[in-house]
């Protein structure tokens, strides 16, 4: 490897070059994300399986969700992906103050998403739409369209709704926590032109969480609306 490659201050001793180090970090992060794809994939499969069986009940449950809150949150999360991508770009260009600014913007947008999720969840608790002994189904939203729906099968929809959005929200909470820890080193200039693997790796994670929501939104909110 060239002398120039060895001159990178951010180069760890086990790597031949900074490029190799960068590739390794990126591959490691992708290996983790492939695992995450399979983790969420299991729940998406359960969703497909039960929706095929209980389409009517899934539409009934879906109608009780607020489509405008879901669409708003989708826009907020896409916006947070943009600010995250710009934070990574700032790291690639060695602009430390810009990294901090874009991380804060991403955290604010992520928090807005979670805040809306709290409103949606508390609404579900108030209407007794949480699966379990206190589950009640009155078909308020469908105005009689789903009167014959089996409450037990609607609970399967809501079980999947809470499991999938819950794990998605958990990933966002973890992400916001990691961003909090990233602020100080970013401000101190730890991530510069020679050392920005961490920011790039975290960016991959945040975009993955965005992709999960891109699928969750139509599957959970937009069933049988026509």
């Amino acid at each position: 490897m060239s002398e120039a490659a060895h001159a990178h201050p951010g180069l760890h001793h086990q790597f031949d070059s900074y490029e190799q180090q960068r590739q390794s970090a990126s591959l490691g992060m992708w290996a983790f994300l492939v695992n995450e794809v399979m983790f969420f994939g299991g729940m998406f499969l359960a969703y497909a399986y039960y929706r095929h069986r209980y389409g009517h009940e899934f539409a009934a449950g879906s109608h009780s969700l607020d489509i405008s809150l879901g669409a708003f949150n989708t826009a907020v999360l896409i916006g947070s992906s943009l600010t995250m991508a710009l934070a990574v770009r700032a790291a690639q260009m060695g602009r430390n103050k810009a990294i901090v600014a874009f991380l804060i913007a991403t955290m604010v947008l992520g928090s807005v998403f979670l805040g809306v999720k709290v409103i949606e969840y508390s609404d579900k608790f108030e209407h007794h739409h949480v699966p379990g002994p206190s589950f009640v189904w009155h078909d308020e939203a469908g105005s009689g369209k789903y009167a014959g729906a089996d409450p037990f099968k609607i609970q399967i929809y809501f079980s999947l709704y809470f499991a999938m959005t819950g794990f998605h929200a958990l990933h966002m909470i973890v992400g916001i926590g990691i961003m909090l820890l990233m602020l100080r080193p970013a401000w101190k200039g730890k991530w510069n032109l020679d050392n920005h693997n961490f920011v790039e790796g975290f960016g991959l994670y945040w975009h993955f969480v965005d992709i999960v929501w891109i699928f969750l939104f139509p599957l959970l909110y937009l069933i049988g609306r026509s």
Binding site: Q23, L27, L82, G203, L204, H207, D210, I211, I214, P218
Partner: peptide, 22 residues
Amino acid sequence: AVTKATLVVLFFMHVAHSSRLI
């Protein structure tokens, strides 16, 4: 949804400019 995910993967996650291993 697949189109949106593809856009995110290719451009936000830089897969369009990544190595063949990625």
